[in-house]
Each structure stands twice: as structure tokens, then as C-alpha cells.
Design a protein around this nucleic acid. Structure first.
Lengths: 204, 204
DNA sequence: TAGCACACGTGATCC
DNA sequence: TGGATCACGTGTGCT
């Protein structure tokens, strides 16, 4: 039981090029089938062989869809090393793992912050939409208890700021990297927020 | 040419369970091969059929590796809808696309910031290691020109801070969401950084 | 029942 | 050359 026909099969360099030509080949196959009447339902011994041909074309479409998905996955993942099917999936896994490690790292640092002397949800209201935050700051399963400090009109005055970087992240959110002097604090609440920066501060 | 033997093949509910039992089945196959001498190199017409058997076991390992990779990919992607091979890859693509959309959104807002009245790299030195930043803030292809404001020991004094959230992100970086009064500014440099917050400020 | 999803063996290709 | 990869048709189980 060899494959039914191998007429005019030309093999290409690699599987993606093959997949590209597979579409037209599929159409020509359909035309061929309709022309010669192979495995037609009106042909003798129709039921069994018709089911077999249906299985063939169905399996062919399944393979084609899977290859297209794999091709799209490769296009989405940066730094693809090899064109291999297994390597494509491996690179995708590593890429997602890298993002997850970053997220887990941030989450761990957030919980470490929570375990400290911080009071959470002191203000009591939440301005953010949870879905609008950057993904790395979101929790997958549960709602994040954001650190929230509401000063209610109190002032932070005379903070010695040695260095400041600002990146606009939208949603009324700024990514601020600041370096400040550990001395010269007036507000207890402010001291909490700034002590964290002080632990990894270059200037003491 | 049907498959050589189908002895004792029990099919399981789904392909992952199948894959789990595939490992032991492989070992038992190897034992079976060594026992009955199927496709042994010392058998008559050794060269050609030996290559064929080598191809069989090689292909078997390739399939096994590909399934393991696919299994690992499914474990890494959250919210897997179906157990399908194609669906697993599709969900992985959608997940990575979601992360990329978030990154692109942030990048667009950063470049929108750059096109404004900001001066960039005013300080001139960079404390960060580029690889240590959270992934969503990194650029894939080129180095990010971070907004950088160095005040060189100047003070920000008497800023009326109405609201402040602080999230520790490590690497001497804080995610600070602040709301301040538009009035009461003293420093021109400070005005740049805070005006951005003011554009989407709830309190004017 | 028909249809779908899978693993398998096999021949061909490329390096 | 041989080892690795691929697409294909086929048999089978599950729904």
C-alpha cells in the first residue's frame, strides 16, 4: 500500500518553503480529484474509500493548520535561533519564561515590601483600572493590593533630590527613578517610600 | 505495507496521557527489539533495513521531543482553552501578542514624550544596565534613550503632593504614581517632569 | 453514525 | 556518509 500517487512531487529546500507551495498544491489536488473522479462518492465501492479519502484531506488540512500556527509563533518570538519545529517551540518557551521571571521577580519584591512596616490601602480608593496596567505589574490570578499612600493634602517639603529620571507610562503613571539624601526628612509617610530607594542608593 | 506490529497497543484518553506512557513503551520496545532481533545489524540484508530501523527510532524520538516541547509550552502559557496541539500554539501566540501590545503601547507613549519639549540625556551618564530593566521597558532592537534629568544637587522644595503610590521595582527603581498641584512650582526642571502628570491629572 | 485528533512507519531531502 | 528533519498516508480511539 504505497501512497496513491506521487506524480509531479518536487521537494523544496525547507519545510516553510514547502508549506508555502503546499497551498497551491492542495488546490491542484482538489482539481485533480474532481477531474479524474478518484474516490468520488459515485464511484464503485464508494463508502469505505470515500471515508479514507476524506480522512486524507482532513489530515492534510490539520497538518497545514499546525504548520501555519507554528510559523506564526516563530514570527512572534524574537531571536529565533534555528528553523526547527522543536527549536521554535523551545525559543517560545524560553521567551515566555523570561517574561515570567521578570514578573515573578517584581511580585516577590512587592510582597517583600508588603511584609514590611507598610500599611496598605490607606487611602481606600483605587483610581486605576486593573486591566490598563502594564502586564508585568499585573497579577495573573488575584487582584494586586497596590501600595497606596494618600497624604490628603499634606506636603512633602525640602526633599534633597540628587537625581531623577522620569518615563511616562500613561494612565496617570510615571516611572520615576530617584536618588535622594537619606537625611532631611520631615514626614513619616514620606520616609517609608524613600527608605526603599535608600537601601540601594548610591549616595547615602 | 501495514505497520510492522501493533501488539499490545492500548490507546489512552488523550495525547498527553499517551505521551506519558510513551516513555515506558519506548523502553519496552527497545527490550523487545534486542530480544527478538528485529532489524538487528547482524541479520540478513543488514545495511538497508538497519538504516530503516534507525530511521524509525530516530523519528520516534523526534516526535517524542516535539510533544514534550509542546507540553512544556502549554504549561507556560496561562488560560489554555483547549488541549489541541494547534490550540496550544494559538494560545501561546495570543499570549505573546498581548505582551507585545503592552510593550508597543508603552514605547509609543515614550516616543510621544520624546517628541515633546523634553530634552533628553541632559545628565549624560547612565547608571542602569540595559539588560537589568523590566522587559516591557526594554527595546528589542535598539537602545532606549531614557529620559534623564539630573538636577545635580538642586532642591525640589515645597511641592504640594496630593497623592502618591510607590511600588518597588528593584535596580534602584521605583514605580511612582503621583498627583500634584499644578501651582506652587519653583524649579523649571521639575516643571517638566510634573507637567506630564498634570496632563492626565484628576486634580488640576 | 460521521468527524476529529493523534501516533505511527516510510520515503525523500539536506548538511 | 550518516544523522536529523520533514510530509505523507494510514489505522485507531474518542466524541
Amino acid at each position: 500500500m504505497e501512497p496513491i500517487e506521487n506524480i509531479g512531487e518536487e521537494y523544496q529546500n525547507y519545510w516553510e518553503t514547502k508549506m508555502f507551495l503546499q497551498n497551491e498544491e492542495l488546490d491542484s489536488w482538489a482539481i485533480d480529484e474532481a477531474f479524474s473522479g478518484y474516490y468520488d462518492s459515485s464511484s464503485p465501492d464508494g463508502a469505505a474509500s470515500s471515508a479514507a479519502s476524506k480522512n486524507i484531506v482532513s489530515e492534510r488540512n490539520r497538518r497545514k493548520k499546525l504548520n501555519e500556527r507554528l510559523f506564526a509563533l516563530r514570527a512572534v518570538v524574537p531571536n529565533i535561533s534555528k528553523m526547527d519545529k522543536a527549536s521554535i517551540i523551545k525559543d517560545a518557551i524560553d521567551y515566555i519564561q523570561e517574561l515570567h521571571d521578570q514578573e515573578r521577580k517584581i511580585q516577590a519584591e512587592l510582597t517583600e515590601l508588603e511584609s514590611g512596616k507598610m500599611k496598605k490601602n490607606q487611602g481606600g480608593f483605587d483610581v486605576y483600572d486593573h486591566q490598563e496596567l502594564p502586564v508585568l505589574l499585573r497579577s495573573k490570578k488575584k487582584k494586586i493590593d497596590y501600595q497606596f499612600y494618600d497624604f490628603g493634602g499634606s506636603k512633602i517639603s525640602a526633599i534633597e533630590l540628587l537625581e531623577l529620571r522620569v518615563n511616562y507610562m500613561g494612565e496617570n503613571t510615571l516611572l520615576v527613578s530617584l536618588t535622594c539624601n537619606k537625611e532631611n526628612r520631615h514626614d513619616g509617610e514620606t520616609l517609608r517610600g524613600l527608605r526603599i530607594s535608600g537601601t540601594q542608593n548610591y549616595y547615602s
